[in-house]
């Protein structure tokens, strides 16, 4: 931009734009989906292109909770607690069909979808989802973040 040129923006749009490209995710990896999460995070698919390359393994430093893999009833209180420990603004991604609905584990041990415990922003179905659909889900989340559709 040359001297004298300017552009206007709303403050929340600017913040949303900034947030969109600095996603610090907390991968709550429990099961098979973790393997695809690893694949997505590594060189071949490279989520770093979307500004989500640095997983923070502490809920206090993260703003997106990736729930990756089946959540059993034994694990549910742990997940809830980790969600509560995260600072606002926070988003939740349900990664894999087990977290969306319980998947084909319709039995005594498995939670039938994590949205019975915590609110979810983006659902990525698949058992496990391919890296391409993970990236698609991530981009959907970015849109959601940029438009400021987050809860407070």
């Amino acid at each position: 931009m040359g001297v004298g040129s300017f552009f206007t923006s709303k403050l929340d749009e600017a913040i949303g734009w900034g947030r969109k490209y600095s996603i610090f995710q907390y991968p709550f990896v429990t099961a098979c989906c973790g393997m695809e999460y690893m694949a997505t995070a590594c060189s071949h698919y490279d989520v770093d292109r979307f500004g989500a390359g640095l997983p923070r393994f502490s809920p206090r430093q993260a703003d997106v909770l990736f729930v990756v893999g089946t959540i059993s009833h034994k694990m549910a209180p742990v997940l809830k607690r980790i969600y509560d420990q995260m600072c606002e603004p926070k988003w939740v991604v349900a990664f894999g069909v087990c977290t969306c609905t319980g998947g084909f584990y319709n039995n005594y041990a498995t939670v039938q979808g994590i949205d019975t415990i915590i609110p979810v922003d983006v659902y990525i179905p698949g058992c496990p989802p391919r890296p391409e659909s993970v990236i698609d889900g991530l981009m959907k989340l970015q849109e959601k973040i940029a438009t400021g559709a987050q809860r407070y």
Binding site: T70, K74, M75, N107, Y108, A109
Partner: peptide, 11 residues
């Protein structure tokens, strides 16, 4: 252990 018990044997 048991945090990922998914009832394989029952299923």
């Amino acid at each position: 252990i048991g945090y990922l018990h998914r009832a394989f044997e029952k299923d």
